[in-house]
Write a protein that binds this DNA or RNA. Sequence first.
DNA 1: TCTACGACTATTTTT
DNA 2: TAGTCGTAGA
Length: 734
Amino acid sequence: MTLSTEDILKNLNENQTKAVTTDAQHALVLAGAGSGKTRVLVHRIAWLISAEFVSPYSILAVTFTNKAAAEMRNRIAFMLKREIRDMWIGTFHGIALKLLQINTEAAGLPKNFQILDSDDQYRLIRRCIADLELDEKQWPPRTVQAFINDKKNDGLRAHEVEDYGDYNNQTLIKVFGHYDDHCQRAGLVDFSEMLLRAHELLLNDEAVLKKYRQRFSHILVDEFQDTNAIQSAFIQLLAGKNNKVLVVGDDDQSIYAWRGAKVEHILEFQTLYPNTAMYKLEQNYRSTQNILDAANGVIANNKKRLGKDLWSAQEKGDLVAVYGSHSEFDEAFFVGETIEGLLSEDARADDIAILYRSNAQSRLLEEALLKRSIPYQIYGGLRFFERLEIKDVLAYARLVNNRHDDIGFERVINTPTRGMGLKTINLIRNYAQMEQSSLWESGKKLLKAGKLSNRAATSLAAFNNLIDELEDNSFSGDDNEQNLASLFTDIIERTALKDHYLKEPPEKAQTRLENLDELINAAEMFEVTDEDLALGLTPLAAFLAQVSLDAGDTTQVNEPHVQLMTLHSAKGLEFPAVFIVGMEQGLFPHQNSMEDHNKLQEERRLAYVGITRAEKKLFLSYATSRRMRGKINACQPSQFLREIPKELIKQMRGNIHPATTYSSHTPIKTPYQSQTQNTNDSPYQLGQTVKHKSFGEGVITDMSGKGDYLQVLVQFNDFGPKVLAVKFAKLEIV
DNA sequence: TCTACGACTATTTTT
DNA sequence: TAGTCGTAGA
């Protein structure tokens, strides 16, 4: 049973329909925030399969995150009422990895090549810096790592990086080369390498290129504004002259230039791909008109744009609320109180999101929510498979999978400590380097040659046996199939890792053990696909590969929570009510981005992303004083606030036009403020003279917040106006 | 091998 | 300010 064309096109607006049914060779779909971007992709694929009878086998759909890939796959299956097996849907990295796994030899990789995640890469780079006898102080590993990845993202290998004759640059190139040599010898592939190598595979192997060009007659790419040079080149190469490419994206939502993404790819798409039809999706189904107008007002200040104007068929809705607070405490208080108000009306906690520019801002907000017993959840931070205990167990598993996995070896050879100190490890390392062998091999040889101390020899032999036994034991039962869950259980028990974590503070240990249980669960749930089997991967190898590409979503949804996250991680999400906090010059736009024109534009796009997350209510707040890096700074409201048309703003407190902020002697009366003052039961009052330890005497001229969050504005005789948190300031009443 | 202390640093993050 | 990291010393 096929889906009728009517079924596919119903519920689509005019431009969406045009994009879905396009017969141009290439299509650029400029999809504004909330305009049904994913919808167009999903319907387009359904259209290709059901109306144009394109075989799913010939379709390649690429996204940036696993989440997006999974969502797309589900929605297509739901629409077509069947699972689409032969179609490739995945992240750029996932697709690249698949190509490498199928064409291992042509790609110049060993059969059992290993994937390095960022942390592994970092460790290896540190080793390389040490190998070359460079000083880490002078060559910070992070800088070197960024250098290598930047170059790879631009499609360059060490020998291709331009050598300006500059010592600094030359050294970086040297480390890059050394690192790549090491990876090549050991069969290691980092994330950027995956893309670079897949690209090279197509570029250098005509037969392979021909095969995939013939196969993928239809290529679709999501979030095209986020592609970096190598990703863009990859698509172009695969497309060749004849295949059809449809990309969806929004130049106004390009917020990842700092990690190699180039807006130019979407801006220049029509030049790069002749015969391109462009479709603009400007009707927004998410937000009220006022919110969209605010977003439009801000983004209009950017220069390099393809130009779009979002509109909504919805009502105008509430005005954008702007709150000027005295301090970050006051701001957190405002957010907490307002959320409490929303919740007492009709909002659910998960209708609400608090967005900020940098993670450090989350703490006070958390405290404010905690105080009111409002459930919340923070996005970001360490993800499941990046946690230390998980990585430890996985490192053992990696060794079981492949004894020559040096990264795994280094990680666990002395974790938990088994008397293999730095001395022994260095001995093994040096020998390995001399012999060009893996650490595992080198250890064995040293052992055989009796070159290790007694203690080291005993424990290394025990370690070797342990790994071998773990592997043997993982094959259980009559079918002799590898059982992952029992392997992991075995690892945790027999390596004494469990006892090792139990030595930590109870709370920490508890979480670690819980995570390990979770890992065993994940292993139990893991199913080897036919594809993995066809590639000749063992269950363990397949599991390890999957785990390294998908760091695991730690967010478990049970009761509704207020969502706290950075503006970056909010991309693609939507909420009925959104708070954007810390709207101040220097924080948002961030200090490091304010001088540079391009960076400032990216900050502005970030503001645009943030504003367009809101469906119905949008609250923007700033503080006129904020403690940052241990220092109290006076802050100006963000320029982005002033870019929102005045008539859309309801200023709840303060004034975003800087001249009149802050130092006035008369407190600003707002409904919000009088409300909090009524409930103020502190000993301090307006007009009161107080004494401060270092600032001396002054008069209280404004107050806000209550309880622990009570703030006062004091005009000090000798130091001028200062905002102080009463809880900390220890003011004496004179 | 573990602990303690001093130095250092401080956007955004997916794979 | 606060958290991480490396090293010195027990």
